[in-house]
Nucleic acid binder design. Structure first.
Lengths: 206, 206
DNA sequence: CAAGGCGTCTACCAATTGGTAGAGAACCGG
DNA sequence: CCGGTTCTCTACCAATTGGTAGACGCCTTG
């Protein structure tokens, strides 16, 4: 397998740039020429590695799904019981938002694009959702968390996190600045909201 | 003002179709030719009423903002105290999602497009956010609701509603069908979650 | 009925799009 | 040093894009 290393690197750089551009400017709004210009290469080099724009999108989807899966699983590793598990999920997602801001944007973009891209993404994320839902369900059955539909709870969390982490202009209108400090504040507020909803009275200290 | 009635109607039909298409397929992905074909007219007719695609977008933004404002204010009219107010907001948003499914999609699309479109939208919605935030703040000060940052609470609600109402493919992965009954279920689940978070123990009856 | 605005149309255009064909450089094992 | 593979390039292309110019019919008003 003497695949040239520089080659691998080119394919990879394309993938990274594509995720960033697709996630921020949108899939249709990003032309292969733009992408190539940003990388200092020619469009045909992109088409060499990814024969069509759609295939490129699929590759980005796969990488994004992998990344999200890894991050979430890692975040869940040392998670404790009850609300600690929800907290672990939320923190993992926000960490993702802080370190790879364009990734959540790309996630949203893919769900907006609809099939087949969105189907591909969700098929890859489904096992994760299932395990997280089971994860939550256990705690509810054990009585350590108020009873809710675990999948809908996850959906709500997912929506809130992506919303709170990505909608910059909305945030502005809602009085939030796009700073890291503000992001942390939003995370804590969301956690406090969820804790109140799921375990009840004991308020989380400021 | 003897503005031709049929004329007015054409301009209006364009606006409605544009909101639907922009909201479902996306702004860049919708060509003026597509739009015109769907309406049984020529692209130049669209350009007669809205000289550029961007101006058309602005017009749709304005109409969307108006519609959302009217719906929300109407929903808040008879709202009672405490959690009733949150419930009124949520119900109004879900009603919007049920009757004009493309509208929430359009809202999301605009926030994704970024300035200047998103700025325009948010400028028009800002007073509404402000009044709703005050609305909530009053109840919290009066002790009828648990204390949270009212604007962040609104943002969370907004995110959850748009997420739960628009992300069809995500919903599929999370085990939800795109039916009206399922939408109602999601609304109730969200309300129960929020009630638990904001007022506490008394569970809402199934 | 004449005149002029209003609304829609046909005809066209320059720019950009995703994609093809194939040349040439760089690197490899023999 | 050679023959082939790997990789990136130049040169094109057909289709589509948002937008312009201007003709044609229709309705209203003097």
């Amino acid at each position: 397998m003497a695949t040239g290393e520089r080659a691998q690197r080119t394919a990879d750089r394309i993938l990274v740039a594509a995720m960033r551009e697709f996630g921020t400017r949108g899939y249709e709004a990003t032309s292969l020429d733009d992408l190539a210009r940003g990388l200092g290469i020619r469009k045909q080099t992109i088409l060499y590695w990814y024969p069509t724009k759609e295939i490129l999108l699929e590759a980005v989807v796969d990488r994004c799904a992998d990344e999200v899966a890894v991050r979430l699983l890692r975040g869940l590793e040392g998670a404790g019981d009850g609300f600690g598990r929800v907290e672990a999920i939320v923190r993992a997602m926000f960490r993702l938002a802080a370190r790879h801001p364009s990734m959540l944007g790309f996630l949203r973009e893919v769900t907006r694009l609809g099939p087949p891209a969105s189907t591909r993404l969700m098929d890859r994320l489904e096992p994760l959702v299932a395990s997280a839902a089971g994860f939550l369900d256990d705690e509810m059955v054990a009585g350590r968390m108020r009873r809710h539909d675990p999948r809908l709870l996850l959906l709500a969390v997912y929506s809130m996190v992506t919303g709170m982490a990505t909608e910059v202009e909305v945030l502005r209108a809602f009085g939030e600045e796009p700073t890291l400090a503000s992001l942390v504040r939003r995370r804590n507020e969301l956690l406090s909201l969820l804790e109140a909803a799921l375990v009840g009275d004991q308020a989380r200290p400021r």
